[in-house]
């Protein structure tokens, strides 16, 4: 049987969902039997080398680079999965959506207790290498079509594992309620 090709990325997330994914612990050995990773921080492959079956997206979109990577994933993955609250609805970073971006920047670089008085010229990050920050944080499904959503902050390891196995085997995603409730 050909292995399923999986790609993963972290956009405006914290890598917590990737960490939760790694929390499948020894099942990672079963995983290696089932899938082969393409572009992913797990194996440090930086560019797609082929079409993939499943793309796992962590994080929403807070800058133009996130949007570019997400569109690239949509173009290279047959099934795209939003993993975790940031990808599904912007998550915690979306708390800034109610605040003008200029206020957030000013607090981080001009007025915050660790920078106040140390930035007399009021320098903001302006290097052309840096991505352009978007006005708001956008969930992935507002940028591209997303096929599945795995909830949680982070989704527990078992949820990611069972969902991935179901997708690999072509089964319907019938996840038990205990896996997707958080209390």
């Amino acid at each position: 049987m050909n292995k399923t090709i999986v790609a993963t990325t972290s956009l405006a997330g914290c890598f917590g969902c990737h960490m939760s994914f790694l929390d499948i612990d020894e099942k990672i050995l079963d995983l290696i039997e089932l899938v082969e990773f393409n572009k992913s921080p797990i194996n440090d492959i930086k560019e797609f080398t082929r079409m993939c079956d499943i793309g796992l997206i962590e994080g929403g979109c807070c800058n133009n680079e996130n949007v570019h990577v997400l569109r690239n994933f949509r173009a290279h993955c047959k099934i795209l999965v939003s993993v975790g609250e940031c990808a599904i609805m912007g998550g915690l970073p979306a708390l800034r959506n109610a605040i003008p971006l200029s206020e957030c920047m000013a607090e981080a670089y001009l007025h915050g207790p660790s920078v106040a008085g140390n930035n007399e010229n009021g320098i903001m990050p302006n290097d052309p290498e840096l991505p352009v920050i978007l006005d708001k944080v956008y969930p992935c499904h507002e940028i591209v079509r997303i096929d599945y959503h795995l909830p949680g902050c982070p989704p527990r390891a078992d949820l990611i594992w069972q969902a991935l196995v179901a997708l690999v085997q072509g089964d319907p995603l019938k996840l038990p309620y205990e896996l997707i409730k958080f209390d």
Binding site: N63, P93, L95, L101, C104, M105, A106, E107, A108, E129
Partner: peptide
Amino acid sequence: SRLHIVEFRGFERFVQ
């Protein structure tokens, strides 16, 4: 050689 930190999320402001 330059290291760029490309992500800005605004925690400093939105936790207030």
